[in-house]
Design a protein around this nucleic acid. Structure first.
Lengths: 223, 223
DNA sequence: TGTAATGTTTACCAACCGGTCAAATTATCA
DNA sequence: TGATAATTTGACCGGTTGGTAAACATTACA
């Protein structure tokens, strides 16, 4: 029998499980740091510690590897947003969303960079996911935020751009890590930078979304 | 004579000027959308409308092209931050910095993506620029912001993370354009999104940096 | 105008890339 | 144990890649 996966035998072997895991781990390492086009199967094979044909025994093409990786990672990547709870206290919800996103940037920077690479290059492989599941989830949560604003629990603001702002500020610490470290200098590049970032961002968003009795500046915006 | 540039004749020809311009424009197009490793000289040659060896007549290697491009673009890219004026009104300065950065994201998205691609992949070609000129400039401006905070003109906050937040939120609209469009849907993907973003971000940062007589929430932070 | 310098292209090369093949090795289980 | 299926690898293939060589074309300028 030469068919690799899901052929005659529907069950997956223990070896299959382990090797596919190993390969996807290596693929994450390589794809996240070089992008799809910039990565080679040989590189992934080397990181995974096996030969190229062996990789291709488990995933028939480079694209298949990439797709499996995206599918596996996308779900967990969206978890923080899913936890966003309409019933909770708005300010507390936003604050803990920021914290969760920042923790993901700290603990799973490769996953963040994987998507960043992909989106940056025009999202050729994940367009459907963006326009489908992602948009749907964001639409839902945006509606929650809009309701909070309408009820006067937070300032009136465009919920989509609020979400974008939280995404960008938090993921920045994963995606632009090299730059952040370079600017902060060696002495401030320890793990403490995530604590500093959390403090700053929570403060920024909480105060920035405070309800104002009257516009705090000469700049007025209403939805 | 076979030497392309800066050899015997110190002056640059008119043709050299034009062709190098043409090539760098094409290189920007290609590098910004596929990253360094993912781009090929042939692609750049095609966009530039000339043959591959002709490109290599003006830039001896792919790396040389990339370097010339980076050098050319980096300066203008940092202009908005340079304009940041210590003498001006703090809130107005921050607001207009946001606006300038957002205008750059709108008008020069390829430049933004060029750097994003580079930094995302570990900044293998611009590490020196990050640790040198960039860090120096940011250190300067951070000092200005710190002085403003000390004088009570804006809220006390970590100036570095403030700058990171402004960078990330504004550049997001260039770097993650595909995602932004996908989430906003076709109807909201017109140029109006930059106006919406500007309104949201100015509001967020201005209110978020307002001086508080007393902490507006149960969360306290002092530098 | 003539000629030397500059600019352009065709043909090519070695290294690399994604992927195949067949043979060899290892695991499974009756 | 032995036979069958699953796994692994070295050798290889056609296409692409960064880059070169040399001939050809064009420009600048005395």
């Amino acid at each position: 029998m030469v068919l690799p996966r899901a052929a005659k035998t529907q069950r997956r072997t223990r070896i299959q499980e382990e090797k596919e895991e190993q390969i996807l781990e290596a693929a994450l390492e390589v794809f996240s740091s070089r992008g799809f086009r910039g990565s080679t199967i040989d590189q992934i094979a080397e990181v995974a510690g096996m030969s190229k044909p062996n990789l291709l025994y488990y995933f028939r093409t480079k694209e298949a590897m990439h797709r499996a990786l995206i599918d596996r990672v996308l779900d967990t990547w969206l978890d923080p947003l899913r936890e966003f709870n309409a019933e909770g206290n708005p300010v507390a919800e936003i604050r803990s969303y920021i914290r969760r996103k920042l923790e993901m940037a700290r603990d799973f920077p490769r996953e963040s960079r994987l998507f960043a690479n992909e989106v940056l290059q025009g999202a050729p492989h994940i367009e459907d996911e963006l326009k489908g599941p992602l948009k749907k989830l964001v639409d839902e949560k945006a509606e929650v935020i809009r309701a909070w604003a309408k009820a006067g629990k937070i300032a009136k603001c465009d919920p989509y751009h609020l979400i974008f702002a939280i995404w960008s500020t938090t993921q920045h610490y994963a995606d632009f890590d090299v730059q952040v470290r370079a600017v902060l200098g060696q002495e401030n590049s320890g793990d403490g930078r995530f604590e500093d970032a959390a403090r700053f961002l929570e403060r920024l968003f909480v105060d920035g979304l405070q309800v104002r009795e009257q516009p705090s500046s000469n700049y007025i915006d209403e939805m």
